[in-house]
Amino acid sequence: MSVEPPERAPVAGWREQFPYRLDADDLVSRREFLRISVVSSGALFGGTLLLGVLGSLTDQRRGGTAVEVARRSELQPNEVRYFNFPGPEDHAVLINLPDQGPVAYSQKCTHLSCAVYYQTEPVPRLFCPCHEGVFSVADGSPTAGPPQRRLPRIRLEQRGDVLYAVEEVP
């Protein structure tokens, strides 16, 4: 013997899908709202403070063994060399700018970590093909597209005629 479900009054479609009434909901008192706001404010402050502590504790300069990149006398103006620094999996690019000399940057785009490439056309620039981010070759700062932070610069040191990558500076 089966039990028939009780008949229900027909209701509007949306009421069936969303059976809640605003006027029957619990009201939050002003004092409760203030308490929630203060707790949220504390959480946001805590997050900011944590980032400050982490930022101060971690040394964000990355170095290690100096890596030979190129011979200065062999570099032509606008010549590009790709190399790995500071780790064997970290890609970097060296550009010999005609007016500024050799500069080097990490190839990791600061947007979503795609590799950036040097382009001379339409203007000399570092270009990220993933989302068309553009960086200045002079200082690695973002000039177009989604990236908001500059490319980490790689400090070069010349010993004799040889250029070495010695440190990655964010």
């Binding site: 980032l51 930022g55 101060s56 500059r150 964010p170």
Partner: peptide, 20 residues
């Protein structure tokens, strides 16, 4: 907080104290 995160990811963690 979003600016602090941006500074942290950009390697300028020392500048977050003012925001905090």
């Amino acid at each position: 907080l979003t600016i602090a995160l941006d500074l942290f990811l950009g390697g300028h963690g020392g500048e977050i104290w003012g925001l905090a």
